[in-house]
Each structure stands twice: as C-alpha cells, then as structure tokens.
C-alpha cells in the first residue's frame, strides 16, 4: 500500500508536517502545495528523508522559495493528477 501526502500548510505555522512524517511509510511520497512550499527550507524536510518529495513549481516561485529546492522535484499543477494514479491512496494535509 502506498500513500501520496498532499501538504498545504507550513510547518512554521502548524504541526501537520510533523504528524504526516509520523505516518510516512517506505512507499509513500509527499507533494508540497501552496504554503506547504515553505517547508522546503524547514529542518523537518531537510533532515534526510528518503521518500520522494515533490513541490508545485508555480506555488514555490510565487513565494520566492527559489534556492531551497534541492530536496524536492518540481512538478506543475497539471502533472499532479497523473501522480495520484501511481499511489493507492491520497491524504490532504490542510
């Protein structure tokens, strides 16, 4: 079983990311959307996480989150739906 976690909040503001990481399993992945893109510079994510991490490129650029994107792969909003189908289920954190 694999889960795609859609993270829409900032770990600087709420503890959704902490709870998400507590549930993270080996085959899971995380997508950062909206204010979730601020997590690109948060130590919770920059500490070694082997799971794949994606971020919505437009959302990160809008927030000037430009140079902290080494830990994550940029995708567009249009590419997100296709990603849903490569996982068994999706959880939205908002």
């Amino acid at each position: 079983m694999s889960t795609l976690h859609l993270m829409r909040t900032s770990a600087y503001q709420q503890n959704d990311l902490t709870q998400c990481l507590d549930l993270l399993q080996a085959n899971d992945a995380i997508v950062l959307l909206d204010d979730g893109c601020y997590n690109l510079s948060h130590h919770l994510l920059t500490a070694n996480i082997s799971n794949p991490i994606y971020h919505i490129n437009e959302h990160a650029i809008a927030r000037a989150m430009l140079d902290q994107k080494k830990i994550s792969q940029a995708i567009t909003l249009a590419e997100l739906p296709a990603l849903f189908f490569t996982f068994d289920k999706v959880i939205t954190w908002q």
Binding site: Y12, Q13, D35, Y38, E58, I61, A62, R63, A64, L66
Partner: peptide
Amino acid sequence: QGEGVRQLVNRQQADIIQA
C-alpha cells in the same frame, strides 16, 4: 512576526498563481 515576515520577502510573484 512569525509567518507574517514572509510578506516582506523580495521577488515574490503573485501573478504566477493568479493572486
């Protein structure tokens, strides 16, 4: 203060997300 400081960050681009 807190997340509010992000409002001051330079080179933000609201138009990209139609905001």
